[in-house]
């Protein structure tokens, strides 16, 4: 296991070495992860806490290569076994989960777009039973730090989706958040992508009055952004999604502003 640890320290991508670790642990612990049965060849001081070794090895590997699929999976596997053994309410698994949440926060501070870490964090948050509001707040903090963080916008959309149909009030708040990004840097696409999704949700609002007032407000915002940055394609594109009265003209402009995607605009125009 020591040699294996060294190898993974050098190259965390070697799946077989992770498998070897898991096989060894399964052989030692049997079905119950709580008991440590024999085979302690001088490693793993604390009896039965094989997981701290595993988490350490995987952490070293991740510090080395934060995008290593097998290293992340190994962590998840360890956690799953701990949860099977201890449950998530309190005790060892719970403590570990809390520590894992901190590790994720650390790693997302270092690279806020690491999708492996975001996925693992989602797993940890779910096991910890973190609420929707807490998670929304976390994405907000990440977005406020760097609103080009598409990963955080994505997660925000996923949380809101999981909560079911978005109401006019929520959408209004989200539109407002996105518009801060447009005004700050209208060329940044993250918030515009999010905006397109918000628009599709807003169009599904049943109350016609609520729907129209929300869409109209957004049309005004986009017109204002467009007035501030006439050569920026994004507000025009958003206006098209929001149902501007002259879509054909709009796509004509867009094709001129953004010739690389001319094929797309021409196709939309002919719809």
């Amino acid at each position: 296991m020591k040699a294996c640890e060294k190898l993974l320290g050098l190259c965390p991508e070697i799946l077989t070495a992770w498998n070897y670790r898991r096989e060894t642990i399964e052989a030692r612990t049997g079905d119950a992860a709580t008991t440590s049965e024999g085979g302690d060849e001088g490693e793993g001081e604390g009896e039965g806490d094989w997981w701290s070794d595993e988490l350490r090895v995987s952490e070293t590997a991740l510090r080395n290569n934060p995008k290593s699929y097998p290293s992340w999976y190994h962590r998840k596997w360890v956690l799953r076994r701990m949860i099977e053994a201890f449950g998530t309410e309190e005790g060892k698994a719970r403590e570990t989960l809390e520590r894992e949440a901190k590790l994720c926060a650390d790693m997302l501070n270092a690279d806020d777009r690491n999708f492996h870490c975001w996925a693992y964090r989602r797993f940890v948050a779910e096991k910890l039973g973190r609420g929707v509001d807490e998670e929304l707040q976390y994405t907000l903090t990440k977005i406020e730090n760097n609103f080009s963080n598409y990963s955080a916008w994505h997660y925000r959309s996923a949380i809101l989706e999981s909560r079911g149909a978005a109401d006019a009030e929520t959408l209004e708040r989200e539109f407002e958040l996105a518009s801060n990004a447009f005004y700050t840097e209208p060329e940044d696409q993250s918030a515009w992508m999010y905006h397109r999704w918000l628009t599709s949700r807003a169009r599904a609002i049943e109350d016609a009055k609520d729907r129209e007032s929300l869409l109209e407000r957004e049309r005004q915002t986009c017109r204002e952004v467009s007035d501030l940055e006439p050569t920026c394609k994004w507000p025009l594109l958003a206006l098209a999604s929001l149902g501007d009265e002259h879509p054909r003209e709009m796509f004509q402009n867009l094709a001129a502003l953004d010739p690389a995607r001319g094929g797309y605009y021409r196709e939309r125009r002919s719809e």
Binding site: A119, R122, S151, H154, Y155, S157, E161
Partner: peptide
């Protein structure tokens, strides 16, 4: 939300 797909449900 963007029409794309992630590794598992909820993945970016």
């Amino acid at each position: 939300f963007d029409g794309g797909f992630g590794a598992t449900p909820g993945g970016e």
